[in-house]
């Protein structure tokens, strides 16, 4: 398994260099989960495909059963499509779910069905018992892009935000309509790492903070080194990642989590391929700019 991971990593690293040199588009290479997963995608598919119908749940009045079932099946079949919603603060939960679907898709599917059917569920040592406000809101979020028709994702993200609390959530402990866009759902860096440690079967080596960049020497070299060890999640300032010099005041704070899939450098140009918002993106930036946007580097390795 390790050999396969090394091979795919070498392909990921060298292919963009060759492509850039030849001036041809870089093809997307399927990203292989580098560790032995807790459960396989085939097991999860067999499980979800064995469920053909769901009855309405009294715990989740806003969720349409057929849509819920379709959503869980889609997520298990195509984990790339996990979408945290436009304008929400769910991106940390989205990144976590994307990793969870690679590590333990069967556990994810079972957990979601248990939550739907019983209104509460446990996963490892964690016991989810969502608040009545969250139960009422799931399935009713609108104007969030494709999240509008993904009630299972709405339920799951709301449950995560309701259960895990960090200092950013201190003043907003209870969900009110619209709080998916507010500090109620915000994920600070320590909270993100804590969620990953608790929900995934991995160790997390984290460098960085909410307000200060990590002192890791050369940021590119450090990230490239960590990519060889495990899965790397970057905590970045998205307002800079999507460059915008139109603003008078640009806040130097991180706001977004991305799962890094490849990083290469040619001269001063760094090419990143990362997962966020339901798909993979290729972005070319300068080395100094990479240092500027990265506030957290989390490396996940199998326990």
């Amino acid at each position: 398994m390790k050999g396969r991971w090394m091979k795919s990593f070498l392909v990921l690293c060298t292919q963009p260099l060759v492509s850039i040199a030849l001036g041809i588009p870089i093809p997307c290479i399927p990203y292989g989960y580098p560790f032995t997963p807790t459960s396989t995608q085939q097991e999860a598919i067999a499980f979800v495909d064995s469920i053909s119908e769901l009855s309405p749940s009294s715990y989740w009045p806003g969720i349409k059963p057929a849509l819920f079932l379709k959503n869980v099946k889609t997520n298990v079949h195509e984990p790339l499509g996990i979408y945290p919603g436009r304008g929400t603060n769910f991106c940390g939960y989205g990144a976590l779910t994307y990793l969870m679907l690679q590590d333990d898709p069967l556990g994810y599917a079972r957990l979601l069905f248990q939550l739907y059917l019983e209104g509460k569920a446990s996963y490892g040592n964690i016991f989810f018992e969502p608040s009545p406000e969250v139960k009422a809101a799931a399935g009713t979020l609108r104007s969030k892009g494709v999240l509008d028709i993904h009630p299972a994702e709405q339920m799951w993200f709301l449950c995560l935000a309701d259960h895990f609390k960090g200092y950013l959530n201190f003043f907003q402990r209870t969900y009110h309509p619209g709080d998916e866009d507010s500090f109620w759902a915000a994920v600070n860096y320590a909270k993100f790492n804590s969620m990953v440690r608790q929900l995934l079967h991995v160790n997390v080596n984290a460098r960085g903070a909410d307000l200060f960049r990590p002192s890791v020497g050369n940021t590119f070299n450090y990230i490239a080194k960590k990519m060889r060890e495990g899965i790397v999640v970057l905590y970045v300032n998205n307002r800079i990642l999507h460059k915008n010099k139109l603003e008078k005041i640009k806040l130097q704070i991180p706001t977004h989590y991305i799962i890094l899939e490849s990083i290469t450098r040619v001269k001063d140009t760094v090419t990143l391929i990362y997962w966020d918002y339901g798909g993979k993106t290729l972005r070319q930036i300068r080395s100094d700019f990479l240092h500027k946007i990265v506030f957290g580097i989390s490396c996940c390795t199998k326990k």
Partner: peptide
């Protein structure tokens, strides 16, 4: 300066 985001089936390219 423009930022061009091209969406393909497999990747979104931002230049």
């Amino acid at each position: 300066t423009v930022s061009l985001e091209i969406i393909t089936d497999t990747l979104t390219y931002i230049y």
